[in-house]
């Protein structure tokens, strides 16, 4: 464990909690892409199947359980409890255009052609593009609630910190995982546009609004 991975995980946890609290407190999921949340639930489900088969550490197990529970709770709030506030008209990204390439890539490019390994690879590739429906929805509505931008900031920051974690592990531990690094780079690059808007607008107290 290193400082980048720890702060990365805490940033990820913060993002997940911020979103859950936003929906719960405002009793509304306006501006939130349910499709992205379903994809994240799928990412955690396919990545943490080893939750019961291999014990790495208490921290690892506890965090995995929290991520999975929060992911499904968020999906439930969006499509169940607060369905009336779900903005389906703007959440129209065609997720099959993500799932099909990701499945093909996971089957073709992986560390080992074994079920658990392919599921993990699928989860890594899917996570790198899972935010696209959310970013697409914001570009369609032309704006985002400030709390939603904080959610996105911490979510983007987490994988950015993981990139530093992988540099650290390569340098100090000789570890290198090309699949995780490349997917993590793609994931972080997708946030660049948002990071720019977040830093130049939201941090200056303005509302995040895109030139529609």
């Amino acid at each position: 464990m290193n400082i980048f991975r720890l702060t990365g995980d805490l940033s990820h946890l913060a993002a997940i909690i911020i979103l859950l609290l936003k929906i719960w407190k405002t009793r509304s999921c306006a501006g939130i892409s349910g499709k992205s949340q379903i994809l994240f639930a799928l990412v955690f489900t396919t990545r943490y199947l080893d939750l019961f088969s291999s014990f790495i550490s208490l921290y690892n197990t506890v965090m995995k359980v929290i991520y999975i529970m929060c992911a499904y709770a968020t999906v439930y709030l969006i499509y169940g409890k607060f369905k009336a506030t779900y903005d389906g008209n703007h959440d129209t990204f065609r997720v099959e255009f993500l799932l099909i390439p990701v499945v093909l890539l996971a089957v073709l490019i992986n560390h080992a052609f074994a079920p658990m390994e392919i599921l993990w690879t699928f989860s890594i590739y899917l996570e790198s593009v899972a935010i696209l429906p959310q970013l697409f929805m914001i570009s369609k509505t032309g704006e985002a609630e400030t709390i939603t931008t904080h959610y996105l900031f911490f979510l983007g920051l987490y994988r950015t910190l993981y990139l530093f974690n992988w540099i650290w592990r390569f340098y100090f531990e000789g570890f290198f995982d090309l699949i995780a690094v490349v997917a993590g780079l793609v994931q972080t690059i997708l946030y660049c546009d948002f990071f720019y808007l977040y830093i130049t607008k939201v941090l200056k107290g303005k509302k995040l609004s895109l030139p529609a």
Partner: peptide, 10 residues
């Protein structure tokens, strides 16, 4: 593509 080294990561 080498061995997956990030088994302990979330």
């Amino acid at each position: 593509l080498g061995q997956r080294s990030t088994k302990d990561e979330l």
